[in-house]
Simulated assay, not measured.
Amino acid sequence: MPLTTVSVVLVEPVAVFEFGVAVEVFGLDRTDDGVPPVDFRVCAQRPGVPLGTGGPAGVAVTAAHGLDAVEGSDLVVVSATGIRPAGEYPAEVLEVLRAAHAAGSTLLSLCSGSFVLGAAGLLDGRPCTTHWRHVDDLARAHPLAQIDPRALFVDDGSIITSAGTAASIDACLHLVRRELGTAVATKIARRMVVPPQRDGGQQQFVEMPIPALTADSLSPLLAWVLDHLAEPHTASTLARRATMSDRTFARRFSAETGTTPHRWLTQQRILAARGLLEETDLGVEQIAARVGFNSAVVLREHFRREIGLPPVDYRRRFVAPRPASTAELELSA
């Protein structure tokens, strides 16, 4: 699908973090980085009326558009809000979501936004997820929904649901990657100083708080690694760069990324390789060298395991053929 028009539907109280994620990924002008422009619309029942956030007094969000602006959107984001019985969500909002889905829009719920989709009857018989703390509540409210309590997000084609809070970033970047390609998703992730894709599921975070991203966060290190994938890295060399002991680094890395340094690095190299397959004509051996694998054989092994296809088959199946140049057409005449 194209991704030229994105609407965010807000229901009071507005969860500020999840709404901010949607703005950060879809609402900022990143055309200077080569990211396609997006017509970004913030929509609510009563445009121009401040919506409470349930947070500190005086903090509110005001939508510039009414729900009529949702019509024709390529993507409709249902931001997180307070959980309530299905019958207490605004009927007008539910009807707009049903109409958007019927018209072919992709719907993306962030955290508790899944309850709004459920209230609209859009999760029945579908795989989905939500914040781990609310999985049982979602199951009771919508027993026909196929809830995966482990997933950071679930992509069921026209409907994508995310787990709690930071998983909203994972789901939004996944949607960008799915529709606009790896290169665009990676550019946005780098600007946000987050990994383009995390490994693992939300079960890692059950009953275990996610550490706050303070000045000693690993984000700068992860961003540096993404810019130096071709170089050899080990957990020990990364720990030294972070000025930590191996044990402390391993614990911090797992807390922030949900996986081990080796697993994360392998996955980022696969993502980079997929981007080069999509965006360039480089051969597999050249791509392997650029992303830090020892050989094309190693790249093929990891790529097949992660993506399900060898690199050449992936390029043939998912990448549109490059138009022939004038010189090539003349030679073939």
Rank of each mutant, 00 (worst) to 15 (best):
P2G: 01
L3S: 03
S7N: 01
P13L: 08
F26T: 01
P36W: 13
F40K: 07
V42I: 02
P50M: 14
P50H: 14
G52V: 07
G54K: 01
G55P: 00
A57E: 08
A60Y: 10
H65K: 05
H65P: 00
G66N: 07
G72W: 11
G72V: 01
V77I: 05
S79M: 08
P85Y: 03
A86Q: 13
A86W: 13
V96L: 06
L97K: 13
L97F: 08
R98M: 12
A103N: 11
F115D: 09
L123K: 11
T130A: 10
T130L: 10
V135D: 09
D137L: 13
A139L: 12
R150G: 12
I159S: 07
I160Q: 10
T161C: 11
T161A: 11
D170N: 06
L173T: 05
L175P: 00
G181T: 04
T182K: 06
A185D: 05
A185N: 06
K187R: 14
R191M: 09
R191A: 12
Q197C: 11
P211F: 10
A212M: 13
A212K: 09
L213Y: 11
T214H: 14
S217Y: 09
S219T: 02
L226M: 15
H233K: 12
T234S: 15
A235H: 07
A239Y: 08
A250Y: 06
T259P: 03
Q268P: 00
R269C: 03
I270G: 02
L271C: 08
L276N: 06
I287F: 11
G292L: 05
S295Y: 05
S295L: 04
H302M: 10
F303G: 07
F303H: 05
R304Y: 10
R304H: 10
R305F: 10
E306R: 13
G308A: 12
G308Q: 09
D313P: 01
R316I: 02
S325T: 14
S325C: 03
S325H: 08
L329S: 04
L329Y: 06
L329M: 04
L329C: 07
S332T: 09
